[in-house]
């Protein structure tokens, strides 16, 4: 009945240890002591964003783990239908980097076999506290044949690009699509003041 207003729908997930910055990558607010909005006390489940890429109108449904990662209770139901996963670690936290391998195993167990993955080394604005070098991040990504970016949710570095790249790699293996080699700039409706340095 409802007229279809888009070409494709991709479900994306954020995975990684607690504290690496997943919520900040997707959501603006966090446990900032000054938030007074009613919503911040409830928390956000997921978002729908519309992007235009290669002439296609794509709906992204993006999920945050809502903290289940703390109890390692991320299971099949969370992964169901996921087409893309951002695997996040914190460049200032060795353990979160080591756990990437564990998360990859978890993904292999529970997620769809052909899910597109991407590894993000977040908090790259904190170079003075860095304990995981960029080349180690690149190394593990290469080993598993996954693309890699260092990001900062706080300084808004590579966040947009991470979503574009992941969406493009899903798009590029979606059947019925013409192969393209020049990725267009993603036109995500996120033009509000993401560039202001308000982190979470």
């Amino acid at each position: 009945m409802a007229k279809k207003s888009y070409d494709l729908l991709f479900k994306l997930l954020l995975i990684g240890d607690s504290g690496v910055g997943k919520t900040c990558i997707l959501f603006r607010f966090s446990d900032d002591a000054f938030t007074t909005t009613f919503i911040s006390t409830i928390g956000i489940d997921f978002k729908i964003k519309t992007v235009e890429l290669q002439g296609k109108k794509i709906k992204l449904q993006i999920w945050d783990t809502a903290g289940q990662e703390r109890f390692h209770t991320i299971t099949t139901s969370y992964y169901r239908g996921a087409m893309g996963i951002m695997l996040v670690y914190d460049i200032t936290n060795e353990k979160s980097f080591e756990n990437i391998v564990k998360w990859l195993r978890n993904i292999n167990e529970h997620a769809n076999e052909d899910v597109e993955k991407m590894i993000l080394g977040n908090k790259c604005d904190m170079d003075d506290k860095r304990v995981v070098s960029k080349s180690r991040g690149e190394g593990i990504a290469r080993e598993h044949n996954i693309s890699f970016l260092e990001t900062s949710a706080k300084a808004n570095i590579n966040i947009e690009k991470a979503f574009t790249d992941l969406t493009l790699s899903i798009l590029n293996k979606t059947p019925g699509r013409e192969p393209t080699d020049v990725p267009e700039k993603i036109n995500i409706d996120r033009k509000s003041d993401r560039l202001s340095n308000r982190c979470c």
């Binding site: 409830i42 956000i44 489940d45």
Partner: peptide, 23 residues
């Protein structure tokens, strides 16, 4: 563009702006 809060009661979620998150 839209955001969904967690479920508050009997299947009800609140809608928020996906970008600035007011709601």
């Amino acid at each position: 563009n839209i955001g969904f809060s967690k479920t508050v009661e009997s299947g009800i979620k609140y809608l928020i702006c996906a970008d600035c998150e007011i709601g």
